[in-house]
Design a protein around this nucleic acid. Structure first.
Lengths: 313, 313
DNA sequence: AAATAATGTGTAACCGGTTACCTATTTCGA
DNA sequence: TCGAAATAGGTAACCGGTTACACATTATTT
């Protein structure tokens, strides 16, 4: 028994002849090790959990694909947890998974307080969210991305730009909103009413745009906090008979595949979603395996992609 | 030890006073049972796996949400497995998960042969796929759904209807295609060239439509094997400057949320996706817990929803 | 050539639960 | 009032691995 274990784990001294014999026996008996027993004694399951707020958003699909890919490469299994941004669900998942000896958490959704995070005692990495300073974070340059979008709108003739922002309290929403404000706050046409709240989902954006245009029919540019809301805005505009991009230009944020599925195709600030997922997964696995981390916070570059909803020269 | 176990599992005789004492002690010590140890002796992990071919398709998102919901209600954890319709990946997942004592498989993707399925020795249910006769299946009335779509197109003035079908060998694709053929095969304008292959993804449908219209510019109706392809068709038509629904009417299949995000909104044959997921999960859990199943094959009703891509009277 | 180090393998404890089985006490019918 | 049945709770085996440790053998050093 011990020798077989040593052969399989390549640990301790085993004579080469014995290794061969063991392998032959394993083949003959079609022996397959039992991972649960292994986990029990090793106190590790080679499993990580990815928490996302909304699996329905293609952004998180792509992220999940990337995480899955990397974790598989390193022999890990991934569990996807949909939290709906509810701390109750999130806590419940964490509780269940800790009981199951989960090895690490990858949080793209985070409703926990810093205290709770400190108490976790399980390695954790945040993607596209900031949580506690002790948690490594992978995100992109949101503020700069917002600058790119607003700059382009201004340069391409917009004279009144609205912003549909993501939920309050969510770091990336704040950053993107701040990036918008940086460039327009001091312009003569600006008024705080041009910033409306959304929840990163399509429906809310439709309502937001309708309210916005009822009050300010002269808006000719919209920067949305993410692509789903930009697509909602586009829908609302089309329904009102407003021509995009002739009358109103729209830019989203994320660069999800959906941007190329609508017509006209959506201009957007594209994040390297797949890379973010891979990087975050690698960092988490490093942490789990107690390897030293070089950097703790990663801010990846973004890129403005102009397509059919803007009038690029 | 044994008594505590009995209290927690409500099994065997335990005096009421002792139960109270145990609960008090659990609270004081903040005792949390170890699920891995429990799994080892019970040979069950309270975990099921959902296999999907393409997590990027909203259809499977919704399915996953439903499965997750039900499994959580019954105390199960769900693992999502993206197979890309590759039997290599699928087999690898199955191998890994069996080693981890997975309790059941829910297959919305299936590349395995009947033999392999028989050998599995783990409860299994198929959704939207048919596999082996011994496996309970949840699907919808695909052929009837196709009839609804094609009937509507015919009634609403189409005189030449093409079909972009799903991949060969996938049962639902065959059924939907057959449903189309049932109604048009004997019409004077019909030719087999009007049926083109797709892979259920958007990109392929764009190419398919372009090829189709190069050869048959007089097509005035398209029935796509799923919504993703219908949206691809819509995109291709819009790019060609063809007006939908005035010149060409389009109907998809599935009823994913995306159908309401494009403009014009897509007409579609809507399946009760969420119910299918819940039903399949319930059946799987019943099987796992060795409860008797009433029926083995479930075919749910579908419904034609006419929106902006058809000319309903 | 003897002492020491390196190599090879088996035994048993351990991970943290579940449960069969045993013994002790209480309940209850005849 | 006695014995069977029901209730209560403890002991130890078991799930299937990992690994510290003991002991045997072989290789190396002086």
């Amino acid at each position: 028994m011990a020798t077989v274990s040593r052969v399989l784990n390549q640990k301790g001294y085993v004579h080469e002849d014995t290794v061969q014999k063991v392998h032959k026996a394993i083949e003959m008996l079609k022996y397959v090790p039992n991972d649960v027993a292994r986990s029990l004694s090793k106190k590790s399951t080679k499993t990580i959990a990815l928490f996302v707020p909304d699996i329905t958003n293609p952004f998180f699909n792509e992220l999940a694909l990337a995480v899955e890919k990397v974790s598989q490469m390193y022999g890990y299994t991934t569990i996807l947890c949909n939290t709906n941004e509810s701390s109750k669900i999130e806590r419940q998942y964490i509780q269940t998974l800790k009981q199951k000896y989960i090895d690490g958490f990858l949080m793209a959704s985070n409703t926990l307080s810093e205290d709770e995070i400190e108490q976790l005692q399980v390695p954790m990495v945040a993607v596209d969210r900031v949580s506690s300073p002790s948690v490594p974070t992978v995100s992109s340059k949101n503020r700069e991305g917002a600058h790119l979008a607003v700059q382009a709108l201004l340069k391409q003739g917009c004279t009144k730009i609205a912003h549909i922002r993501g939920p309050k309290g969510i770091w990336i929403a704040e950053e993107r909103c701040q990036g918008y404000l940086d460039l327009v706050e001091d312009l003569p046409w600006f008024t705080p009413k041009l910033v409306v709240n959304g929840n990163f989902q399509l429906k809310a954006a439709i309502e937001a745009v309708n309210k916005l245009f009822d009050a300010h029919p002269d808006i000719d540019g919209i920067f949305a906090g993410n692509d789903m809301m930009a697509i909602g805005a586009l829908r609302a505009l089309q329904e009102r008979g407003i021509r995009v991009p002739d009358q109103v230009q729209v830019i989203g944020y994320d660069g999800i595949p959906l941007t190329e599925m609508v017509y006209p195709e959506l201009s957007t600030v594209s994040q390297p979603i797949y890379e973010m997922g891979m990087l975050a997964a690698r960092i988490l696995i490093k942490k789990i395996e107690q390897q030293p981390l070089d950097e703790v916070n990663h801010k990846l570059e973004v890129e403005l992609i102009q397509r059919g909803t803007t009038r690029q020269r």
